[in-house]
């Protein structure tokens, strides 16, 4: 083994990075174009398509809706997913194996089928408001990620630590908050980010559940592209990218991102 990587390895790594980065460069370039149509390389430099996002009320509204749905859906999924993951790990021997698999089902079923089923059975069946249907749909599609990520975190947690705390006089529920939760904090944050981003990006399920007056950002982007071919879509994408980077930067500063790679 030599200290310097093989030149071939450097070339391959470079190509992979290029492959990953190029679409982003093109989107950013297209977003900055002064033209009224999507083009790359950009012709002229302008931020007017970024202003345009906020001038179109549908974008303003759907950004807010998307953020609300993503945040609320993720929080509900955490409220259900943390206790579920805890129980699945704590009582791994006592509980039947299929119970854990149950929580993965929503991502095993094709999302488009899942969305359609939810529309037929819930929205049409009960006449529930659109926002509520969207919220429930998103909660269900992010729940598997939450349970999985937090389970991974709990798998390396030694439950005798919990028993030690209980034996020292700490009541079980209190022990969960003072001992278990602080030790799976990284997993909870990772689950939050993953769920939030998954919800924010979802198209298939939202496609069925959005309705008159209420839509999510990805659906609005689709609708916009169907009618217009201006760079607004590119600038919305850039905005989303920067939002994601900002979230990651905050997490990196406060916690470090290494836990995501675990």
């Amino acid at each position: 083994m030599s200290d310097r990587p093989h030149p071939f390895l450097i070339v391959v790594a470079g190509l992979v990075y290029l492959f990953l980065m190029l679409p982003l460069v093109i989107v950013v370039g297209a977003a900055l174009s002064d033209t009224t149509y999507l083009t790359f390389p950009p012709q002229g430099l302008s931020l007017r398509w970024f202003e345009n996002i906020f001038e179109i009320s549908a974008f303003r509204r759907t950004i807010v809706t998307s953020l609300q749905i993503a945040f609320l859906g993720t929080m509900i999924a955490l409220l259900i997913g943390i206790p579920a993951a805890y129980a699945l790990n704590r009582f791994r021997i006592e509980l039947p194996k299929w119970l854990g698999t149950l929580f993965v089902l929503p991502i095993l079923v094709p999302e488009i089928v899942f969305g359609f089923a939810l529309l037929k059975s819930f929205t049409v069946g009960t006449g529930a408001p659109i926002f509520l249907s969207l919220l429930i749909g998103h909660t269900l599609i992010v729940l598997p990620y939450v349970v999985r990520v937090i389970s991974a975190s709990l798998a390396s947690f030694d439950f005798s630590v919990e028993e030690a705390a209980i034996s020292l006089g700490s009541a079980p529920v209190k022990t969960f908050f003072t001992i278990v939760l602080p030790n799976i904090r990284a997993g909870v944050i990772a689950a939050f980010i993953l769920a939030f981003i998954t919800s924010l990006n979802d198209v298939s399920v939202s496609l069925f559940l959005t309705g008159p007056g209420i839509s999510t950002l990805p659906i609005q982007i689709l609708a916009h592209v169907e009618q217009f071919f201006d760079p607004t879509v590119a600038s919305v994408s850039v905005l989303l990218m920067f939002l994601t980077v900002a979230v990651m930067a905050v997490v990196e500063r406060t916690l470090g991102l290494t836990f995501l790679a675990k």
Partner: peptide, 15 residues
């Protein structure tokens, strides 16, 4: 948690 028993575990179980 009400038994008031001191426990020492094989894998230490420190917080």
């Amino acid at each position: 948690h009400k038994r008031d028993i001191g426990l020492v575990f094989q894998n230490y179980a420190l917080f």
